[in-house]
Amino acid sequence: MDALLESLTTIGRIFFDVEKMSQALPIVLSAFPVSVFIGVVSFVLAIPGGLLLAFMKMARTRVVRWPATFYVDVVRGTPLFLQILIVYFGLTLLPFYQTLIREVPQLKQPFLFGIDFTIYLRAFFVLSFNSAAYMAEIFRAGIQSIPKGQMEAARSLGMSTPQAMAFVIIPQTVRRILPTLMSEFILLFKDTALLAAVGVAEMTLRSREFVASTFNQSAYMVAAAFYLLVTIPLGRLVGRLEDKLAESEGGGGAKRPPTLLAPEIDAEHVVAHSEGIPTTGSSPNPITGGPR
């Protein structure tokens, strides 16, 4: 009994040291906006890219379809961490990047939350390009999940294909993919932690610095709490949106696929990621179907 109590106390001291946690709190808190800012901006930037890739993947001509398929397969088939390493160090070696820095020295000045703009730029670049590949599949599956009769009805009324897309197909798609898209944001937000490895002073890096200087893990727990602060409410919201969607759908006459519920945020989620919307006519792909 004493032995048990003793090991519990040890665990508490290593991971949940109140004093260390209160010291770590302001440090991690100061990096919280960095993580959120990078996550939100990268997500927003990824949306047009994802849409473009989705339309390219649905194109009739192979010349248009092929580059998008290649891009999505490569990005989804390689580790994000590797992509970060390539972009963070590789980009700076490119002549145009060096010229840019020389011509616009302000980019090297602290921009927001004490971090210079080139750091953000590279973070946005790698995360949004990565996320766009995942979104392409979400958008494509979403658009293809709209019954064919919707496009036919719109066209039979004299609408052009772009009009039918804009006023009939896309509005329905947005409603359907919103939960999946929010799950994608949650993943993206958690992925910002990988930037710690290349020196971006976001929450994970700041807590690691604290851990390194105190030999105590408590700062990680503080960081975890901040991640959960974002991911848990958003995850609940995803669930609520799904319920609402399930309730409100069913009109339009044509039968819709039985389920398109985005998976919960847990270990399985990563595997099921982007498979949340049933696709028609596409066989599972070992790359695109795999974990991130």
């Binding site: 009805a153 329905q172 409603r175 339009g252």
Partner: peptide, 20 residues
Amino acid sequence: INKVRERIGMVFQSFNLFPH
């Protein structure tokens, strides 16, 4: 074809109303 379709109404077996 869009000009032609303006003047040809069509009603489908599956209604195809816009659910949104």
